[in-house]
Amino acid sequence: MAVLDRDTINAVREGFTRHRLSWIDTLPFLFAALMYFFAARYLPLGTQVMIQVAFALSLDLALGYGGIDSLGHVAFFGMGAYAAGLYALYVSSEPLSGLAVAACIGALTGLVTGPLVLRARGLTVVMLTLAIATMLHELANTSAMKPITGGADGLFGFKIAPVFGMFSFDLYGRTAYWYSLGVVAFVFIICKLVVNSPFGLAVRGMRDNPVRMRMLGVNVTARLVTLYCVSGALAAMAGGLSAQVTKLVGLDSLAFLVSGNALVMLILGGAGRLYGAIVGATVFVALSDRAAAIDPFNWLFAVGGVLILAVRFAPQGIVGLIADWSQRLGWVRR
């Protein structure tokens, strides 16, 4: 262990288990930046990874930290995607303002559905979130909404102007890659700031024991709605990002599969530690891609297999497993 001195290991574990920003937090982004130079063929795949990372991070905020068992997080993703698409089609093709609009719509969706969902707990939350997402999915496909959403054909034909007016989206996905990386970094920093704030502490306490939190003078429902709005805004940014880089909003951006996949990513990576979302989404997307390349028909078998192994041998997720190992190696937290 000559290379890994005690301080480095401590820093790594802090990054994985504690919740403060440190130098270790730049590593995934450095890695992503390096990938641009050494794996240029995979830029479009990398962009997909980053969209999923952003979405999984937003879900981690609600589920991993807030204990909101959302099975309908795709509602935010889809609302953000349609918001960004419609904004580009009718208002302006400027991308950053499009993302801001998507985030606002996401927060608004959280504000409207949150009070309904968050009074309940447990299975009721699962069912309510699922129901809301399914209703939105159906709504987007109704004949009344078809002129707006494009129905099953999806929303297309919009253009996205160059980022900062300088970097236009190219065929090879270079701009899209850097743009997505920037958005993910933004989402990650917001998540870190939220979970470290006094608000974030209260949210973690609420996940442990909501009644006790109320007995310490905290308005639990109001805090949960706030968290739901923040998480919804970030999820909608992921959806908006997806709309902007693919220049298409399909009906499937409101489909249950998106929620389910994000949940699988969190389980793979480990919920409630932010890095779980990064690792889980990366592994999930990369694995799906490789498995599909090898066997285009039965690739889901590989994903399912890995999930079963993860749940059996790493119930805390991959990141949880790493954190456990580093602890077992004997480096006690200061």
Binding site: P198, L201, G205, D208, L216
Partner: peptide, 21 residues
Amino acid sequence: YVSQEREIFPSLTVDENLRVA
């Protein structure tokens, strides 16, 4: 109110348990 079960938040540190209250 200090309840019989104490109800310390397991995923917060001692300091954080105090900070939230």
